[in-house]
Design a protein around this nucleic acid. Structure first.
Lengths: 109, 109
DNA sequence: AGTATCTATCGTATTATTGCAATGAATAAA
DNA sequence: TTTATTCATTGCAATAATACGATAGATACT
C-alpha cells in the first residue's frame, strides 16, 4: 500500500524506528551534533552552519521536535533549541541495549 | 528538489544516517532483533515471523544487505541471513560514540 | 520432464520525504 | 507606524520508501 504498517509491530520496535529516524538523515545528524557541541543552545545559527535553506532546516527541526529528541524555547524573535536530555538518555539506553547483544558467530561466515 | 543532498555533508554524517536508516523501520528492527536472537541463521523463516508479504520482507532484506548490516549466503533453495559482525561493531561504535557525548545542561531547561 | 519449494525481481499503487521560494506571524527597534 | 529580524508554515515539485501480487530463476525431488 505504501504506508508503514506500524500497528503490527511492538511499541518498542516502533520507538526504536522513530528514534533511528531522527538520525536517518545527514542534516539531522549535523543538527544534533551541533547541538551537542555548543554548550549554549543554538537558534537560527543552525541555518548558517547547515548548507540548506532556512525552510528546510526548520522542517528538520520540526521532525526532531516531534520525535522528542530536541526541544525549542521561544525567546522572541529567536527560538532556542537544545537536546532533550530525557529523550537523549532514552535513545542512548535503547540503542545501547540493542547493540549490547553480541552476534552469535553461528553461520554464514 | 526532493532528494537528499548527501554531497554537502561529511562521510561520517552520511554513514551515521545510513546505519540509522537500517533501524528506521520497525520491520527492519524486527528482522535484526530476530537475527540477533536465533543463534543459527534464519532464512525464509523471517517471512513467517513478520506480518508482511514475502516480497516486502525480501525488499527489507535487500536494503539491510546493501547497507551491509546483514549478509546472506545462498544455500539453495534457501538463503541464510545473518548479522555482519564487522558492520554491527561499526554501528555499535559509531552510535556509542555519538551517545557518549553528554548533554551540556546549558539552557532551555 | 514435471512438480514443488524458496527467494528475488518487476510492475504498480500509494504515501512519505526532501528541498526551497514565498508568505505569514511575532516581536523589537526606528 | 514603519521597518527589520527571526522563525514557522504553506504550496509546489521531485524523489524515496512502503507494500504486495505476479512472475521469474534456481534447485531438489519424483
Amino acid at each position: 500500500m505504501g504506508v508503514t504498517k506500524t500497528q503490527v509491530f511492538t511499541d518498542r520496535q516502533n520507538r526504536i524506528a522513530d528514534l533511528a529516524k531522527a538520525l536517518a538523515h545527514p542534516a539531522r545528524v549535523a543538527i544534533i551534533q551541533h547541538l551537542l557541541k555548543v554548550n549554549s543552545c543554538v537558534c537560527g545559527d543552525l541555518v548558517e552552519v547547515l548548507p540548506l535553506a532556512q525552510a528546510t532546516v526548520s522542517q528538520h527541526l520540526k521532525e526532531l521536535k516531534q520525535i522528542g529528541i530536541i526541544h525549542g524555547e521561544i525567546n522572541p524573535p529567536r527560538v532556542c533549541y537544545c537536546i532533550n536530555e530525557t529523550v537523549w538518555q532514552e535513545a542512548k539506553a535503547i540503542f545501547g541495549d540493542l547493540f549490547e547483544t553480541s552476534v552469535a558467530a553461528a553461520c554464514c561466515n
